Simulated scan of single mutants.
Amino acid sequence: MSRVVVFGYSGYAGGAITRELAERGHDVLGVSRGADGEAAAVAVRAGSIFDAQLVEEVAAGADHLVVALHAQGEPPLATALPHLSASAVAHGATLSFVGGAGSLRVGENGPRVFDTPDFPEAYLPEAQAHGAILDSLREAPAELDWFYVSPAAEFGSWNPGERTGEFRIGGDVLLTAPDGSSTISGADYAIAYVDEIERGEHRRERFGVAY
Rank of each mutant, 00 (worst) to 15 (best):
129 A>C: 04
142 A>N: 10
135 D>T: 13
66 V>T: 11
38 E>T: 15
200 G>M: 00
198 E>V: 10
134 L>E: 07
128 Q>G: 05
130 H>D: 08
113 V>W: 11
168 R>F: 10
201 E>N: 14
127 A>M: 01
145 D>F: 08
46 A>Q: 15
71 A>V: 04
19 R>A: 12
158 W>F: 15
120 P>R: 09
159 N>I: 13
187 A>E: 12
36 D>F: 04
52 A>R: 09
191 I>Y: 07
157 S>V: 14
207 F>T: 00
51 D>N: 11
40 A>G: 12
81 L>R: 04
126 E>S: 15
64 H>M: 01
119 F>G: 04
159 N>H: 14
88 A>K: 05
140 A>Y: 00
48 S>Q: 12
106 V>G: 04
137 L>E: 03
57 E>D: 15
67 V>W: 00
108 E>A: 12
88 A>Q: 07
141 P>I: 01
56 E>R: 13
59 A>S: 13
41 A>E: 14
184 I>W: 05
171 G>N: 12
127 A>E: 00
148 Y>V: 02
1 M>K: 11
21 L>V: 08
12 Y>K: 08
28 V>M: 02
151 P>W: 07
6 V>W: 04
75 P>H: 06
179 D>W: 14
197 I>C: 07
78 A>L: 14
80 A>T: 01
148 Y>T: 07
177 A>Y: 07
98 V>T: 15
165 G>L: 13
10 S>C: 11
147 F>H: 07
110 G>E: 05
31 V>P: 00
20 E>H: 05
205 E>N: 06
24 R>T: 05
127 A>V: 03
153 A>R: 11
149 V>L: 11
199 R>N: 14
177 A>L: 13
185 S>I: 02
93 A>T: 08
205 E>T: 12
130 H>V: 06
174 L>K: 05
116 T>G: 01
29 L>R: 10
18 T>I: 03
7 F>H: 00
81 L>H: 10
114 F>N: 09
61 G>C: 02
86 A>Y: 07
137 L>V: 08
24 R>W: 03
141 P>W: 02
2 S>T: 13
76 P>Q: 03
63 D>A: 08
153 A>P: 04
34 G>H: 15
48 S>M: 09
109 N>G: 14
107 G>T: 12
184 I>C: 00
72 Q>N: 15
181 S>Y: 07
58 V>S: 06
144 L>F: 07
50 F>T: 09
95 L>C: 03
123 Y>F: 14
11 G>C: 05
132 A>G: 12
116 T>A: 03
128 Q>E: 13
112 R>Y: 00
88 A>C: 06
32 S>Y: 00
198 E>L: 05
157 S>G: 15
176 T>I: 10
8 G>N: 00
120 P>S: 05
126 E>F: 10
153 A>M: 13
192 A>W: 04
55 V>K: 02
143 E>K: 09
66 V>L: 09
129 A>L: 09
115 D>V: 00
202 H>R: 09
119 F>I: 03
184 I>Q: 05
105 R>A: 03
115 D>F: 00
201 E>C: 06
22 A>W: 01
199 R>E: 14
193 Y>V: 06
105 R>L: 08
88 A>T: 06
36 D>A: 08
54 L>E: 08
167 F>P: 02
181 S>W: 07
120 P>D: 07
53 Q>W: 01
200 G>N: 10
174 L>G: 06
59 A>D: 05
76 P>I: 01
197 I>Y: 00
198 E>Q: 10
24 R>H: 02
196 E>N: 10
112 R>C: 02
110 G>L: 04
7 F>E: 08
110 G>H: 02
